[in-house]
Design a protein around this nucleic acid. Sequence first.
DNA 1: TTAGTTCATCGTAAATATACGATTGATTTG
DNA 2: CAAATCAATCGTATATTTACGATGAACTAA
Lengths: 109, 109
Amino acid sequence: MQRTLSDISYNPEEIAIAAMAKALSHPVRIRILRLLAEQTCCFTGELTELIPMAQSTISQHLKALKEAGLIQGEINPPKVKYCIDREQWGKARTLVGEFFRLNGHAGCC
Amino acid sequence: MQRTLSDISYNPEEIAIAAMAKALSHPVRIRILRLLAEQTCCFTGELTELIPMAQSTISQHLKALKEAGLIQGEINPPKVKYCIDREQWGKARTLVGEFFRLNGHAGCC
DNA sequence: TTAGTTCATCGTAAATATACGATTGATTTG
DNA sequence: CAAATCAATCGTATATTTACGATGAACTAA
């Protein structure tokens, strides 16, 4: 795979949107984000209790979300507090929003 | 894999958003959507000329976008005209827009 | 009919994603 | 210090994605 991907020069926006979308491409990650966003205050591994998945799996998904910049974790021994990274979240919203503002032209198909 | 996925009951919105995001999770699909959206009129396999990838690969990506409902193809022998499915596109925008309206609470982390 | 065009699909190889249990590392508590 | 807790990481099995070339199906043109 990826035999030609490197030959295509994507612009940064295309890459950013795709990376963004990839982070959102699994339902459990959507669930996690919803849970984090809905909490009155920040969250920790209660996720492990709310989501019937192995702790290691949830940790993996959290890592993916963190790497995408959507959430941030604050070590708060002996726990870790996760929450939406509001700044990045806003940027993502803008990015995706602008992309969706594109539209097919009338009279097509 | 998927050993527990079926045990978790995701709600339809979570599934829809994740599916949507998955369709957008590859830069070449973002590129394709942009190309389709920017064309004054609808498109066919000129994509094959604009994107340095095997025709079969592009066809595969088009299929993914079609299955996600984002584009539609109209057979127009001997070619096929693709374009943004504006109705679905609008729905996707709403879905994603609402999701992004979620936000972490102030005072977190 | 025959050849050519266009696109989808098949078969396949390699990369990546996803899940688990087990282990490790950091920190707190006794 | 020892034991307990919490979360990350490791190792691994399986599924999915992604890419390619080759083939096939539908249609046009000669």
